[in-house]
Amino acid sequence: MSATHNHSQTVQIGAPTGEQCWSCGDMRAAAFCTACGRVQPPAPTDFFSFFGLPRKLNVDAGSLERAFYQMSRKLHPDVYANASSKEQEWSLQQSSLLNDAYRTLKDPIARTEYLLKLEGVEFEGQSKAATDRARETGTQKKQVVPPELLEEVFELNMQLEEARMNKKMGEVDEALSGELEETKKNLQAKYDGLMEELESYWNEWDAIEDRAAAGDSDAVPDQERSSVRDKMVDLLNRRSYIRNLVRDVNEVLES
């Protein structure tokens, strides 16, 4: 944990954008004016830029929270209850953006997925579009079994089948339940372990970003970027696969 903390980026709100404040004319930050504090009209942005962050994955939770609180004080509609309707509208837009951005960035998985989406990744296995398509065509959603789980999943499916039959007949197989509990524990451990693996990819990604920021962008071949990106996509797919397995086991175990 501490290793990642070392190169976690701290959030600094209020970096000037080079744009002028509509109210006082001073240079301003993205969402509010650093000089007079007024809310600014919303402009297209992504969640990282909104917090003044580069597109890196190690984010210091404490400083993100502090930035969220500070920006809430600047942008929340309560602050503009007596302001012009224009400012009220901007405050509504900006504070919803702030809340959406904070909600996404504070959650490690949502943050990773969001960054990957910015990088053009579409999550086949999980996206709503894919779910809709599967429903429309009546086909099973494509879920690739992660190779290292193949054997385990095969056995688990047999056990689940048997357990479901037992349940239907009203029988209880203590041994089988015990085995399922054991499998669940293993899966849960694997699931938890993925977080550590993910963090190592974060570090790889952030290192690439740092190099790109330091030198010219040619310093980082596209291949390198896409390799880390693919590893993260693969991990997230595995993660959702395991989560579904755990859910299936829980369904059977709960009477």
Binding site: P77, L92, S95, S96, L97, N99, D100, Y102, R103
Partner: peptide, 8 residues
């Protein structure tokens, strides 16, 4: 439990 204002 999403903080409001919230949007989608």
């Amino acid at each position: 439990n999403s903080t409001v204002p919230a949007s989608a």
